[in-house]
Amino acid sequence: MEKFEPVIVAFCCHYCAYTAADMAGSQRLDYPPNVKIIRVPCSGKVDAIHILKAFERGADGVYVAGCLEGDCHFKNGNLKAEKQVQYLKKSLDEIGIGGDRLEMVFMSAGMGELFARKAKEMTEKIRQLGPSPVHTQLEQQAKQKAS
């Protein structure tokens, strides 16, 4: 079997995490290409449905990246996001996907290094967990269709 390359979706808030990702870019800090960023104005904008849909479509991991506590440009959107993530982790356990595949991370705009590190950590963690059951099934279905 070829090496498992997890697909990871990172919802990044515009003001901090997305800027940190740009910063990681300008500092040329390598991180795994598995991470795909979706920009949102605030991590509090990330709707539960976005996260569930990502898993439904086959994401192996998802993380929401917001500002540091107290730094949110919309007061506390990051903390709302964190609560949502904690709540959804339980749902993911129930669904059978596993709450471990979802994380909340915090960083400031200047933390390019942390962005790269979190991307690495998340990718490593998901690699260890292996493909999500949905991902596995979707691939099997695709194979069946093809054959």
Binding site: I49, E56, E94, G96, L138
Partner: peptide, 10 residues
């Protein structure tokens, strides 16, 4: 979405 994923996993 949750149902879809749960069934898919199974």
């Amino acid at each position: 979405s949750a149902l879809q994923s749960a069934f898919l996993s199974a």
